[in-house]
Design a protein around this nucleic acid. Structure first.
Lengths: 177, 177
DNA sequence: AAATTTATGTCAGCCATGTTGACATAAATT
DNA sequence: AATTTATGTCAACATGGCTGACATAAATTT
């Protein structure tokens, strides 16, 4: 029903200003649609375990940062400790996450994935990674190098250094590949 | 505390497979962080009006597609009509959205932004557009052309045509620029 | 040693936004 | 005249956020 113009190469170039302006709208809307589908893969799998998106996020970041403290995890997720406590309790009770007393600071409860947790994270990652892989391949080699910088450009400037350090850590969960 | 490797240009190239594999993880995590900050701009402004993110989304897409039917809007948002009804009722009661009987099909309730709605959408858009503009500029001209295709590659294949048509429609809300 | 700060946990209640299921109405279509 | 479609509505429930108040143990400061 909606004809619209071609997405990648607009047929009739409009004025430069309008063009740049419209490109912003395009990216904003695509961001919404992309994220909507991007999150659907994990959701489906977690549902089978009676877990939600929040559980998936916690497991992901614990898996990527074994021994992370609760405070550090809170800083990544940007939620309150009360919100985290709920999902964390369930993950621990059901044996997907394990806590250890901090060796230096015994107040800390360092977080680790159990074997079950590692396996679930892997399972959740499969379709999501496949989705991103397809998008990277379709976009071509130049795009592959540009993706991370572009996404990082959306992040708040004051958080970029921390985010950059975090995402560039080598993979830990799934020592295989 | 976290050193990590440089994000954009890894210092020591690792094995090709590992590299590609890690790039996927990187993009997945960056997508989370980017979306987290991306949505924070609208949230702050809508809060002042005692509206939520859901109201913002409805106003955005109604503004972009004046005269859209409820069914079409539901198909964009992918939520249930009961969920939509709640926010839509508030938006209509408070005079940000207006309904008109469909001229051909009198069962339809076509949706339009009121003047107040147009103004609020513009207000909400300002920081979000600025954020994306900065990211586009920082990423360089090649990236600017690659963004939309890359994001579209994340969308479910069967929805791409519809999404593409939708986002490439010329701007309507904010006839100015 | 005592006082304070920090890391974490917990209880209780609230809010926004999603869900399902059932039913209602008017208009369009068969 | 019967059926389908577009929309709305009621009710109940789930998830994942939030605030505020308070508790405990360990580390740090005075």
């Amino acid at each position: 029903m909606d004809k619209g113009r071609a997405l990648i190469e607009p047929q009739a170039p409009v004025e430069p200003d309008d063009y740049a302006d419209h490109r912003l709208t395009e990216v904003i809307e695509l961001f919404f649609f992309a994220y909507r589908d991007f999150t659907s893969d994990p959701d489906e799998i977690l549902e089978k375990y009676e877990f939600g998106r929040a559980h998936g996020r916690v497991m992901h970041f614990v898996g990527r940062n074994p021994g992370i403290s609760v405070a550090e995890l809170l800083n990544i997720l940007r939620i309150t400790k009360q919100s985290l406590a709920r999902v964390l309790r369930e993950l621990i009770e059901r044996g997907f996450v394990r806590q250890e007393e901090g060796p230096r600071d015994r107040r800390q409860r360092l977080l680790f994935l159990s074997q079950a947790g590692i396996e679930l994270v892997r399972k959740v990652d499969v379709p999501q990674r496949a989705r991103v892989r397809r998008a990277l391949e379709a976009a071509g080699p130049e795009a592959r190098e540009l993706w991370p910088g572009m996404l990082l450009g959306i992040v708040n400037p004051e958080d970029r250094a921390a985010v950059s350090a975090l995402v560039s850590k080598p993979r830990v969960v799934g020592e295989d590949r």
